[in-house]
């Protein structure tokens, strides 16, 4: 009897720990505006909440956890084929586009897809030495490849956000997006804490 009771206690503890772990991932968004009057916004959402709520939303572009994307946006590039090629390749910088007003880099590193976009003031760029120019804004995106695959697992003209969130919940601490420009900084990340720092 006593042994059965202990077995039950252990089973209950393991189940609860499992549930807690599943509910443990939080997605955080932090926006800090520059200046004295700048706002500071912090949002903390449990991934499990997003996972449960997304399928219930039946809006115009967001339905069943999938976002409809303008077909023309995805028509130009076969994203799936591109990612497939990059996924099986070695870590490297695969795309670099430099123009008078921006630098775009796409790389693969340690199972993550890295995208960096830097926006410049063209006048400033012409007069400054390489590497010295000031950027207007910098966007860094770091997404695990399985999450990207899940995101693109739907139809050609849709992004499967729900599938991406499910895969994302398997990861520990990940900085997904950082954006910084003259007026504000934005950070989106996932971790196991329920408060943003």
């Amino acid at each position: 009897m006593r042994r059965n009771l202990w077995a039950l206690v252990v089973l209950a503890w393991v189940s609860t720990a499992g549930l807690a772990a599943a509910a443990d991932r939080w997605v955080h968004v932090k926006v800090i505006e520059a200046g004295e009057d700048g706002e500071r916004v912090r949002i903390n959402i449990p991934l499990s909440l997003a996972e449960k709520v997304l399928p219930t939303i039946k809006a115009d572009k967001l339905r069943d956890g999938k976002i409809k994307v303008d077909e023309h946006t995805l028509d130009r590039v076969d994203l799936r084929a591109l990612l497939e090629a990059v996924r099986d390749a070695q870590d490297n910088e695969y795309v670099r586009v430099e123009s008078s007003h921006e630098d775009i880099r796409v790389a693969k590193s340690g199972g993550f897809l890295l995208i960096k976009v830097q926006d410049f003031d063209p006048a400033n760029r012409k007069t400054s030495q390489p590497g010295e120019h000031k950027h207007h804004s910098t966007v860094n995106i770091k997404v695990p490849f399985p999450v990207v695959n899940a995101l693109l697992s739907g139809e050609k003209d849709e992004l499967n956000v729900l599938a991406a969130i499910r895969v994302l919940s398997d990861y520990q601490d990940v900085d997904l997006v950082t954006v910084s420009d003259d007026s504000s900084t934005v950070r989106v990340w996932v971790d196991s804490r329920n408060v943003a720092d």
């Binding site: 549930l19 509910a23 009057d37 700048g38 706002e39 500071r40 916004v41 912090r42 949002i43 903390n44 959402i45 449990p46 499990s48 909440l49 449960k52 709520v53 399928p55 219930t56 329920n194 408060v195 943003a196």
Partner: peptide, 19 residues
Amino acid sequence: AATEELLRCPDGPLVQVDN
């Protein structure tokens, strides 16, 4: 769905806006 899930979540701040 949001209610059910929030009830399961640990306590904490969800949104903070400061200026």
